[in-house]
Design a protein around this nucleic acid. Structure first.
Length: 205
DNA sequence: CAGTCGATGTACT
DNA sequence: GTACATCGACTGG
């Protein structure tokens, strides 16, 4: 017996596609954390691609290390790293084993578990500030060091399919907060969504 | 509004 | 030492 119209978990093949393709197609998909606090769901609205082979800004550019080991696995894992002494950022690993590519989740529109998300982010915060940025997303969804290397098909973390966002609603720009490989136009977001971290010119110089 | 800057831990030179 | 895929508070116009 087939489950009735239940949303489907994205299959591993999805993550084995070229990283820029996955980044584009990840917009609109549903990120799920089945946490101790409850089920947290959100719709991905902003991402950035990082690709070890050609991208100096990628953690994987200089090869595999203890920190970035997860990036070099086959697609379908969560790569979580700690930065600036106080923040976590989460990525979706893409492509084949050994490539070293991932997609940073920068903006997630909350869909379920809003009370928990509000609690995780602290009191008296504007709605749009809950998840409009990579470290905000991790704090809101309770993602930290223990989730580095988690499977995206596991009991705790999953990604569900959703209707494709039309090209006309998607913007592509240079990435935020990096110094190397600044020219690469590898940031994707849903136009006009309040949970996008900030606005930028569509074409930088 | 825009620009600047401090917090604070870790990876890597 | 230095840089860092950030955030939020603060400054000045």
């Amino acid at each position: 017996m087939q489950r009735a119209a239940s949303p489907f978990v994205l299959p591993q093949d999805f993550y084995l596609q070229p990283t820029l393709t996955v980044a584009r197609e990840l917009l609109g998909k549903i990120f799920i954390h089945i946490s101790q606090q409850g089920v947290l769901k959100g719709r991905i609205v902003e991402v950035e691609a990082y690709h070890g082979a050609t991208d100096e800004a990628s953690h994987g550019f200089k090869g595999k290390t203890a920190r970035n080991e997860v990036m070099f696995r086959q697609g379908g894992f969560l790569y979580v790293y700690f930065t600036y002494g106080m923040h976590f950022c989460m990525n979706v690993v893409t492509e084949a084993e050994g490539v070293g590519a991932a997609i940073l989740l920068r903006g997630i529109e909350p869909l379920e578990g809003l009370e928990v998300i509000q609690h995780n982010r602290g009191a008296n915060i504007q709605l749009y500030q809950l998840t409009s940025g990579p470290a905000k997303c991790c704090q809101a969804f309770g993602i930290g060091r223990v989730h580095n290397g988690a499977s995206l098909f596991g009991p705790e973390i999953r990604m569900e399919g959703a209707p494709r966002i039309p090209d006309a609603h998607i913007q592509q720009t240079t990435r935020i907060g990096i110094t190397r490989s600044r020219a690469l136009v590898w940031r994707f977001f849903e136009q006009g969504n309040p949970f996008v971290s900030r606005t930028r010119p569509a074409l930088a110089e």
